[in-house]
Amino acid sequence: MRRNTHKKGQPGRRRRLPGAPGRGTLEKEKPPILGLIQRGGQVILHMLANVQQATIKPIITQAVGPGTLIHTDEYDIYARLPAWGYAHKTVCHAHGEYARDEDGDGFCEVHVNTIEGFWSLLRSWLRPHRGISQDKLPLYLGFFQFVHNARRRGKALLSALVSGLVG
């Protein structure tokens, strides 16, 4: 008997997580997480109380230098980035755009693949824990952020860990 087949008229197997689609909220027990990552560099993670511009502005202004070019999707929370002093380019996932070559050199400069890849790693790492409480989630995020940011230090990882624990 062949695998992965189903009878005509029967729906195929669902392969996504249960739950309502859309943005998470604390009330839905799917808290929103803001992630900032420099290509080839450090990541910063914050669990948010809500998804509003007033909530993300202090995080972004503290972590990102003025005038920096920021790439995002077209979620409207990022609409004020230019007014806050940042260059801003977007990709529109709703129209099937995931990367864009703006100067015609064959290299897609505008994309959010770096953070999308990071979210994939984080989800894979969290999956075996099966249901982390919202109280503990910032601790898990902090640990994963530390490991990600320290991964290139090699032998210096131990001293970074000790200084992180002491500091």
Rank of each mutant, 00 (worst) to 15 (best):
M1V: 12
R2I: 03
N4D: 12
N4Y: 14
N4R: 12
T5D: 05
T5R: 11
G9E: 02
Q10I: 00
P11A: 04
R13N: 04
A20P: 04
P21V: 14
P21C: 08
G22N: 06
G24F: 08
E27Y: 02
L34P: 08
L36H: 00
L36E: 03
I37G: 07
Q38A: 15
R39D: 05
G40S: 13
I44L: 05
H46M: 02
M47R: 08
M47A: 02
N50W: 07
N50E: 14
V51L: 15
Q53N: 11
Q53D: 11
A54E: 15
T55Y: 11
K57D: 01
P58Y: 13
I59K: 09
I59S: 07
A63P: 01
G67S: 02
T68I: 12
I70D: 00
T72H: 10
D73N: 14
E74Q: 14
E74T: 11
Y75N: 10
I77A: 08
I77L: 10
A79V: 11
A79I: 12
R80E: 15
W84S: 08
W84G: 14
G85A: 04
Y86A: 01
Y86E: 04
C92M: 04
H93D: 14
E97A: 07
R100S: 09
D101M: 04
D103M: 08
G106S: 09
E109Y: 07
V112R: 05
N113W: 02
N113D: 02
G117D: 06
G117N: 13
G117K: 03
F118P: 03
S120P: 14
P128A: 11
H129Q: 07
H129K: 09
G131E: 00
I132H: 05
I132E: 00
D135C: 01
D135Y: 07
L137G: 03
P138D: 13
L139A: 08
Y140F: 14
Y140A: 00
L141W: 02
H148E: 00
N149H: 07
A150W: 13
L161A: 12
S163D: 12
G167K: 06
